[in-house]
Design a protein around this nucleic acid. Structure first.
Lengths: 231, 231
DNA sequence: CCTACCGATCGGTAGG
DNA sequence: CCTACCGATCGGTAGG
């Protein structure tokens, strides 16, 4: 298999569109494809994310996905060139959303002590993992082995971006003595603890996401070590 | 599907064996089935564990497993009634081995302070997860959704036994102040951090299993809180 | 995006 | 445990 990444078209599937007919002068009239493709593609992505999460990639058929999106069995292949490309698009979508949400939350704690910054990262991470529309990231976490190597490399770059958000915060906590483990291993162990929650968290049970945030912070950092350094 | 559990024969597949022939008087001669079944069954389990781990359950064919065990495509079904039963047997094997190893290691730290007991549990957990013959537990951790509900219930009982080994140790650490998070959530988060290591640990890289044990202990417990209570 | 379809593969079985 | 095989399903495509 060649090393090109299965690119996912975001719009304009047709390179050259015919000139708009005269009667479309008033309101720019879109073609059938343009009008519906965003919708249908998004519906496929959502359906695929939910099914890949609950059944796994290999156990999910493209027919399942088509039916969940209200299409016929062959139609997903109009939007995605293969089942693989659909999986990759789900994972990309998940990582882009997670990065966007963390970056949107960062300014709120930018001038706070590192412990509050960590709390923000942990809270957003749990929300992305366990909140509404939370099928995309779990699929990325648990179906990575179904990707080809080019796709894996592209996703690794996004994951590396994500880790970059954590490292300076953990380094500051390590320096202050609030985090005793080495920063690299601490990051891996902490994200593992958080990521594993998708296996057991049940919103119908006692603990809330806020309880999880509190427990994780209490488990990982030593509150006493940071009390001496305000500002 | 009826709710009976796919039981896995551990030996004596034949209820009544014919009396041993006279020439077998000196050394008790086993039948062909008795002589080879343990071997072949164990070979299938090992091959299945390795393939289920690297490719996932749904993406692994029974033909793959047969070939890896040196058999023809139909032969696994002589030892296991279905692909499902093979998966369940792999998971059972993994849990039994993990429980046995933890129980064998317990006496060494039974009279030590809780922090040393936790170190023992963490170390054995990492060894079971990352050491030799370590495909069984990862399969159990990451392929649970492919089980039917009866199998899931039976495995949950074993997992509950396993958690029972951790709870008193964590409770003692919580009481002493060395573990600040609530015991229940702390256990879930900690085991998540450990279990996630199968996703990233690479023995060819810098960190060793002992490094992981040190980092996990440093991350989870506050060394200073226990120094005051030697006994 | 649908209809109709193909080629390949897969879990499982009969009979020895 | 092997041989020979079946029925069902699946990813993907042509042609509109």
């Amino acid at each position: 298999m060649p090393a090109h990444v299965a690119t996912v078209p975001h719009s304009t599937p047709e390179p050259g569109l015919p000139p708009a007919p005269l009667r479309a002068r008033g309101r720019p009239r879109k073609t059938l494809l343009e009008r519906d493709d965003g919708n249908r593609r998004a519906a496929l992505l959502r359906a695929a994310a939910a099914l890949f999460r609950s059944q796994g990639f290999a156990a999910t058929t493209t027919r399942d996905i088509a039916a969940a999106a209200g299409m016929q069995s062959g139609s997903p292949f109009y939007h995605f060139k293969s089942k693989d490309a659909l999986l990759f698009a789900v994972m990309q979508e998940g990582m882009h959303a997670a990065l966007a949400r963390q970056r949107a939350a960062l300014p709120a704690t930018a001038s706070s002590p590192p412990q509050a910054q960590l709390r923000g990262l942990v809270q957003t991470h749990f929300q992305v993992l366990l909140g509404p529309d939370s099928d995309f990231i779990p699929v990325m976490l648990y179906e990575a082995r179904s990707l080809n190597s080019a796709q894996r490399i592209e996703l690794a770059a996004l994951q590396s971006e994500y880790e970059t958000l954590w490292t300076p915060v953990l380094a500051a906590l390590h320096t202050s003595g609030a985090l005793r483990a080495p920063v690299g291993l601490a990051r891996l162990l902490m994200l593992g603890a958080l990521n594993w929650s998708v296996q057991w968290f049940d919103p119908r049970k006692s603990a809330t996401v806020d309880d999880l945030v509190d427990a994780a912070l209490a488990l990982f950092v030593d509150a006493r070590a940071t009390e001496a350094a305000p500002t």
